[in-house]
Design a protein around this nucleic acid. Structure first.
Lengths: 206, 206
DNA sequence: TCTTGGTTTGACCAGTTGGTCAAATCAACG
DNA sequence: CGTTGATTTGACCAACTGGTCAAACCAAGA
């Protein structure tokens, strides 16, 4: 019933979402205009609004699609696996996600920077729940000495910060390094960092 | 000549800049309106434009004032000091800066996220020059075995990422942890992370 | 070919935006 | 107190914004 999709509908809807991702991820919600998105999608503004009821609807659709896959890397963290390898490969999956979907990363960053007006609710519910669960696993590893003693929440935050930085601050990274690919060397570096943190003696200041 | 400042001028100009910082850091340049800033500053819109010629002028003034102090922590990195302590305390200074000036951090983040249209030039000149200089110092430490073998640029990026994350993603951090202070525990954690990276054996993958 | 339902658009609208301006108000000094 | 220059504002404007709508267009099946 809600399924019937013409070829044209599918093509235009994806074109709009792709254009919206381009524009919203660069200018944020309030800084983006329907005209920009319409131009980027190769459609007229009224035609945009034939497929999506409003500017907000496009934005919401993008965020929903994003959140659906954004947390997959963390979901895959397996309590049965080898502690260090599990965490390291989680960081690697997250980095891959940032490299392959930098626009999504910036869309998310924009939303959070502006106080998460549209996804704030799920931060405290779905996201918190998932993080708390995985933090529990990490804490267990930490308590049983399988990894160094580290605050699990901060560890997760550090993985988010390190990986997303290359996508979100792309311009700065490229400018400072002169490289064209902001992710060059990032994988090896983050691998090194994570192993260093997890391997180090149980000493934990404070 | 350009110095003459009435008490009123000083008061209003600082009120405007403070209000502008509030608004710009939350909504970005294009997402902010003069009315918002005027309201936040307790002035009328025409009165705003009596002190600053345009919306852009306020934004520019803020960015200039910001960049002036934003890089101080890195400038203070001293080649004559103890390598590990120098880097660790640089990270601590940067974290302090993020905690004390979260709005400035978000203003900067917004600007970079949107492709740095207004400060892009200085990223490749002033910033790159400073970073390259300090990266040279770190590389020397690394080469002489005084710290572990690490890519200096990535090391600096990681410090930026780790410290700014708590200010820029404040909402997310607070939501996930349920804490009111997003910086709680951050100092100890970052200290631990930096020492782990720098202390670890010279093994460097890839 | 005709019809039908999905698709596209030009013209339009009300609200908002950055910015202007002349007139009114205020502070301070002689 | 009066004058002068700094300050403040209400009224206004043109451009832009998200969104509407009736009319035109088009694809495809009968």
């Amino acid at each position: 019933m809600t399924k019937a999709q013409t070829r044209i509908q599918l093509r235009n809807r994806t074109a709009i979402l792709d254009a919206g991702l381009d524009v919203f991820s660069q200018y944020g919600f309030r800084g983006s205009t329907l005209d920009q998105i319409a131009a980027a999608a190769g459609l007229s503004k009224p035609n945009l609004l034939y497929y999506f009821p409003s500017k907000e609807a496009i934005h919401t659709a993008l965020l929903e699609r994003l959140l659906d896959t954004w947390l997959d890397p963390l979901r895959a963290l397996n309590s049965a696996g080898d502690p260090v390898e599990e965490i390291v490969s989680y960081a690697q999956r997250k980095l891959t996600m940032s490299r392959e979907f930098p626009r999504e990363s910036r869309l998310f960053a924009n939303e959070i920077l502006q106080g998460a007006p549209r996804i704030g609710a799920m931060l405290g519910s779905d996201l918190k729940q998932l993080v708390d669960e995985k933090a529990g696993i990490i804490r267990a590893w930490s308590d049983t000495g399988k990894i160094a003693r580290v605050d699990p929440h901060h560890l997760i935050f550090s993985i988010w910060a390190l990986t997303q930085h290359y996508a979100d601050f792309d311009v700065q990274v490229r400018a400072v390094r002169g490289t064209d690919d902001p992710f060059a060397g990032a994988q090896a570096f983050i691998d090194h960092v994570m192993r260093s943190i997890l391997r180090s003696d149980g000493r934990n200041p404070s």
